[in-house]
Amino acid sequence: MPTRRHVLGGLAAAPLLSRAAWAEVGAPTHVAAARRGNGSYALFGMTGVGDVAFEVPLPDRGHAAAAHPVRAEAVAFARRPGTFALVIDCADGRVLRRLDSPPGRHFYGHGAYDRSGDMLLTTENDYESGEGRIGIWDVGAGYLRIGEVPSGGIGPHEILRLPGTDRFVVANGGLRTHPDSDREVLNPDTMRPNLSFLSDGSTDRVVELEPALRRNSIRHLAARRDGTVAAALQWQGDLSEVVPLLALMPSEGPVRLLADADPGQAELQGYAGSVAFDGAGGRVAITSPRGGLAQIWEVASPGEPQILRRPDICGVARAAEGFVFSDGGGGWLTAPAPQVHPVAWDNHIVSLLAG
């Protein structure tokens, strides 16, 4: 498997066409997928005050997106077990490329660019073997797939690049699934979720939860500027058991279960849908559409969390100050005032803010 260094040094890729930067398409601060009122789907660019900067149709339900670090270009991923992703020019709405997962694979709805935007990494399921894969696509060569590496576990859901680096972290949720069985978990008794850290195409660190929490699927991620990773968890065991659904992984040291002793975790009904640090990095939020609430925690000295109650709240991302949240009723909750759009926002918000 060629590493980033080999790829960039050895490929004679065609030069990229000059395309608009994010500032030229209405200066959006976030992108998110949604279902419109007529039942169709689209990817939206949203400004810092919650206005729509652009709207690009999607052929089916989207999940999350990867935003190019420089150009106004995004990859919209189908919801698991979808097999397509669309590379979209957000300046004019053109579909630049359609990416199809290799035979025997499907995407998990997430991906991430490297720091330069030269390569895209995608989380994938090799569903016959049950092993997780990270697909590698060369952007300059027209999103040519140039290889893959192991994800470090089963069920790689979200992949995230750590700020200021070309090191990636993968949430291996531990759930073995197969398209023939829809979304049924095939290995509930042998789950081993983990966080895997990848550099130059190989795994350099794997972190697991304690054995008693092996059914706590690690699904979604956020990263702070200092490399601290926050993980939103989804409990696959008996929902009468109340378990922590928010974990922090510092750049060095053990996993910290931020909500370990909080009785309010029961309100989340075993499901944390998204996670984000705020703009300053001092607070971290998780959402629960099942529970209809978000919890906002102080990272340094957690006490009881701040609670935001909103039906079907799931999307969360950092804003210039604080957070932005979204819900299935069209609510886009950000400063200076919330807005309601005629859409049903999907699960995630992707921040375009630097850092």
Score class of each variant (00 low, 15 high):
Met191His: 05
Pro156Thr: 14
Gly140His: 12
Arg133Ala: 15
Ser199Val: 14
Ser202Pro: 00
Gly140Ser: 09
Asp138Glu: 13
Ile154Val: 15
Gly132Ala: 14
Thr122Asp: 04
Val207Glu: 13
Asp180Ser: 13
Ser199Gln: 13
Leu120Asp: 03
Asn125Met: 10
Arg224Met: 04
Asp189Arg: 12
Glu128Gln: 14
Ile159Asn: 03
Arg192Asp: 13
Met119His: 15
Gly132His: 11
Asn187Lys: 08
Glu208Thr: 14
Val149Leu: 14
Arg167Glu: 15
Asp182Ile: 03
Asp182Phe: 14
Phe168Asp: 02
Leu120Phe: 05
Glu148Gln: 14
Ile134Gln: 01
Pro188Met: 02
Glu131Phe: 03
Ser151Gln: 06
Ile159Gln: 04
Leu198Phe: 07
Thr190Asn: 06
Tyr143Pro: 05
Leu175Arg: 14
Pro193Thr: 09
Asp182Glu: 13
Ala212Gly: 11
Ser129Gln: 10
Arg205Asn: 04
Thr177Cys: 08
Glu210Cys: 00
Phe168Thr: 01
Leu175Pro: 02
Pro150Tyr: 11
Asn194Val: 08
Pro179Trp: 12
Val139Gly: 07
His220Pro: 08
Thr122Ile: 12
Leu162Asn: 06
Ser199Asp: 15
Leu120Gly: 00
Phe168Arg: 04
Asp126Tyr: 05
Ala141Gly: 13
Glu131Trp: 01
His157Trp: 01
Pro163Val: 01
Leu209Gln: 15
Leu198Ala: 12
Asp204Leu: 04
Thr177Ile: 14
Ile134Thr: 02
Ala223Ser: 14
Asp180Thr: 02
Gly152Val: 09
Ile218Tyr: 02
Pro156Ser: 13
Gly135Ile: 09
Asp189His: 12
Val207Thr: 14
His157Asp: 13
Leu195Val: 07
Gly117Asp: 04
Glu184Tyr: 00
Ile159Ser: 05
His220Arg: 02
Val169Arg: 11
Glu124Asp: 12
Asp180His: 06
Ser129Thr: 15
Asn187Phe: 05
Gly155Asp: 09
His157Met: 07
Pro211Trp: 13
Arg161Asn: 04
Gly132Arg: 12
Thr165Lys: 10
Pro193Phe: 02
Arg176Val: 03
Leu120Ser: 01
Ile159Lys: 04
Ile146Cys: 03
Phe168Met: 06
Arg167Leu: 04
Arg205Met: 10
Thr123Leu: 08
Met119Ala: 13
Leu144Lys: 10
Thr165Arg: 11
Glu208Met: 07
Ala141Trp: 07
